[in-house]
């Protein structure tokens, strides 16, 4: 049977009988379709997260024997620089003696090194301000007023424990997860 032509376009509510049922059905269908679109979107988004081969390369071992006291090296871990510094007795004492109230982000030195290995400070070498790499690992670099690291971008300064002492950086240098495999070897990650 041919019927009325909805020339007045669709908004028409013909015959009212099953309106409620139709609307509920439409709601369910619309919701299911939205779930479907989300299910399509997620694999696309997740494909941009680190892939299995990137995640698998998450640990690196560092031999500490060649690093003389007072100097440090930079190693790459997950594409980021990690500073490994061999601190002198004087530097350790300075770091331990600081009053916590004088710090921008108060943290004891003992919480930033591994017990029994206070001569080794291991930090992620990325300024917590805007991501530049601070200077100070090489003996010829400026190390700032607190003898640690100095960020050339905006002048942030860190002490020998990697704690921020002068802004604009808001936080101490991050500590990577690491463990001593032996007295002369650490595994980062």
């Amino acid at each position: 049977m041919s019927a009325t032509a909805p020339a007045d376009h669709g908004s028409g509510h013909p015959h009212g009988v099953d309106e409620g049922k139709r609307d509920f059905l439409k709601l369910v269908t619309g919701a299911a379709a939205a779930i479907g679109v989300g299910a399509i979107a997620w694999p696309l988004i997740d494909s941009m997260n680190p892939s299995a081969d990137v995640l698998a390369l998450s640990s690196v071992e560092v031999d500490l024997t060649p690093i003389p006291a007072g100097q440090g090296i930079t190693v790459a871990w997950r594409g980021k620089p990690v500073f490994v510094r061999h601190r002198t007795e004087k530097e350790i004492k300075e770091a331990e003696d600081v009053k916590l109230s004088a710090l921008i982000e108060p943290q004891a030195d003992a919480d930033r090194v591994k017990p029994g290995h206070a001569q080794w400070i291991v930090v992620i070498g990325i300024c917590t301000h805007l991501g530049c790499i601070p200077l100070g690992n090489k003996p010829t670099d400026p190390r700032g007023d607190w003898g640690g690291w100095f960020c050339p971008c905006h002048g942030s300064q860190y002490d020998t424990s990697g704690r921020v002492r002068h802004g604009p950086a808001p936080l101490n240098l991050y500590l990577p997860p690491y463990a001593f495999e032996s007295d002369t070897k650490i595994k980062i990650g």
């Binding site: 019927a3 009325t4 015959h15 299911a32 479907g36």
Partner: peptide, 24 residues
Amino acid sequence: VILFLAMLTGITYAVKRKVWSDVH
């Protein structure tokens, strides 16, 4: 995915029948 799409096909077809019920 197949179960979900089968369900979606079913309810979409039901909505289609409803929408078109005033035409046929």
